[in-house]
Amino acid sequence: MSVLVYTENWDGKFKKLSFELVSYAKGVAEMLGTKTTVVSIGNVDEAELAKLGNYGASKILKVEGDNLSSLDNQVFTGIISQAAIKENASVVILSHNNTGKAIAPRLAVKLNAALASGLGKLPLSVDPFTVNKKVFSGKAFADVVLSSDVKVLTLAQNSFELIENGGAAVIETFDAEVGQVKTKVKDIQKQTGKILLNDAEIVVSGGRGMKSPDNWGTIEELAELLEAATACSRPVSDEGWRPHNEHTGQTGKIIAPNLYIAAGISGAIQHLAGVSSSKCIVAINTDKDAPIFEAADYGIVGDALKVLPEFINAVKEIKAK
């Protein structure tokens, strides 16, 4: 028996999300009294792979190949399922990001496994295997019992603490059968030099209360100062003031940063569904009855256009100290 984790790599590198996954898998493995194996697909060097040992991986199966640099859902599902069978995995864990969402459901079918997705905490029990997950976009929680022999779980990003334990992993080359790649990538367009919204520990977000796209300079200045990502509410992206990939909310991005600063956002229930897992929410809004204040930890009733520049000055002062 074992717990198997799949972590993707970004141009041959892992990131915090990868270490969260391994830390989580190690926790599940301890509950089951077993060990954690990682399967890595694509070209990653040994030094990078070795980092995963520190978070609890006992073994790493590496599957390399130049045709594995971009995702083909069927090919990746095939490789991970072969690894799960080889390792006799009873639980397979992936991220609840776009890659995990693409593969996990396919993998669940292939392994005759039940799937529980978007988890933030360790299982409540392993016999019966019970997890607690958010439902109705965070408006409720459910205890879900997975009755299959194998279980597939996906972990929400930024929801599980990293646990370093100084361990070392055995790295093996895994000769998996790679199926036919049917998804052909014609072009890749990457954001460069910006902190990604899903990775960010701090997010500065603007709503219609910012009044005009011309006023986004202060949002960007504050974000840069705090090494934060920028985000926006749905009306702002619908108006074309900001790109769609900045829209946080139920149908946009669901994020869980340590600090979410909502400037001029009223906090419609759909917006809160995307940000309510943030550890700390700051709201700046002219309307004292705006629903954002019910979700916020700290609030200022005031015009975001006046408050943000003062916020920036105050941050500069503490940075100078």
């Binding site: 969402k101 996990a104 079918v109 799937l115 976009s137």
Partner: peptide, 23 residues
């Protein structure tokens, strides 16, 4: 928006043995 599983499309593709593209 009810059970937030992000699962049906991928599962369907696997059952039908068809390629899938997500997101």
């Amino acid at each position: 928006s009810d059970y937030n599983g992000s699962a049906v499309g991928g599962m369907l593709a696997e059952i039908l043995d068809l390629p899938s593209v997500s997101a």
